[in-house]
């Protein structure tokens, strides 16, 4: 079906609104730098441990005999979980593929098949990466607990707090996931028992739905915090800074 000849670029009438290219540019810069940092870890760093602090990029350390670069051993799973995340997909398609770069901004590319073909059709595997991400999360929680144990004694350092916040944010991100929201209850057609009371799945779905509204926020904050946590531990390892012990 034919379309009208042309349309206007959207103008911004509210003075506080940012130009349309700010968001996609931020995405490209943020994800690009994060990607480069990750590559640097993969190829040039073999560990991320400082005493009882373990960088989330290198957890778990146990590899059960499988020989790969230390960072790759675990890194693929959170990366794929994030790459197939419904929120990141929006940002990636907008920022990297300009599909579209912003609403009502014309696209230059003619060819488009959405998520119907490989590799983008594999985003449908998001739930599988979620399962793996949950397993990794268990290890990260163990690491966070370890971060409070200094030579067999309980203690609190700045690093312990950073690692706790880090795993907290990752948990929020993981359990506000769209796929989880579907699996926990969204997929059921009926939310009430025959006596009219809410089903357990409904209660969970309702809770996850509330978290899900902030999924995008958790996505960014948790990503930056993982980054920050690794940088912090790496600075400790290299003796650039010293950990602060509160207790």
């Amino acid at each position: 079906m034919a379309q009208t000849a042309e349309s206007l670029q959207p103008t911004k009438r509210k003075s506080h609104a940012l130009p349309y290219w700010v968001e996609p540019t931020f995405t490209v810069v943020a994800l690009g730098l994060f990607g480069l940092y990750t590559l640097w870890l993969v190829f040039f760093q073999s560990s991320g441990q400082f005493h009882n602090y373990l960088s989330p990029f290198f957890s778990p350390t146990e590899s059960w005999g499988i020989k790969v670069l230390p960072a790759i051993w675990v890194l693929w799973s959170p990366l794929l979980f994030r790459a197939t995340c419904y929120y990141y997909r929006k940002e990636i398609y907008r920022g990297f593929f300009h599909d579209p770069v912003s609403c009502a901004v014309p696209e230059s590319r003619k060819y488009y098949f959405g998520e119907t073909r490989f590799p983008f059709s594999w985003t449908n595997l998001h739930r599988w990466f979620w399962y793996v991400a949950v397993i990794v999360l268990v290890f990260l929680w163990i690491d966070a607990v370890q971060a409070f144990i200094f030579n067999g004694h309980f203690g609190i350092g700045l690093g312990s707090i950073i690692m706790l916040i880090n795993v907290g944010l990752l948990t929020a991100y993981t359990f506000s996931c769209h796929a989880f929201r579907h699996l926990i209850g969204g997929g059921s057609q009926k939310f009430s028992c025959s006596d009219g009371r809410p089903t357990t799945r409904y209660k969970w779905w309702n809770r996850v739905s509330a978290w899900n509204e902030h999924h995008g926020t958790y996505a960014w904050i948790s990503m930056f915090f993982v980054w920050f946590t690794d940088v912090y531990i790496r600075l400790l390892m290299n003796g650039v800074i010293h950990d602060v012990r509160f207790f």
Partner: peptide
């Protein structure tokens, strides 16, 4: 109907005058 063609870039949600959360 081609739901796979949608790449969830959410412009539909942005313009909906009824505030329907179309994408999520």
């Amino acid at each position: 109907a081609g739901v796979g063609m949608c790449n969830i870039t959410k412009c539909c949600t942005v313009v909906c005058p009824q505030g329907i959360d179309i994408t999520d």
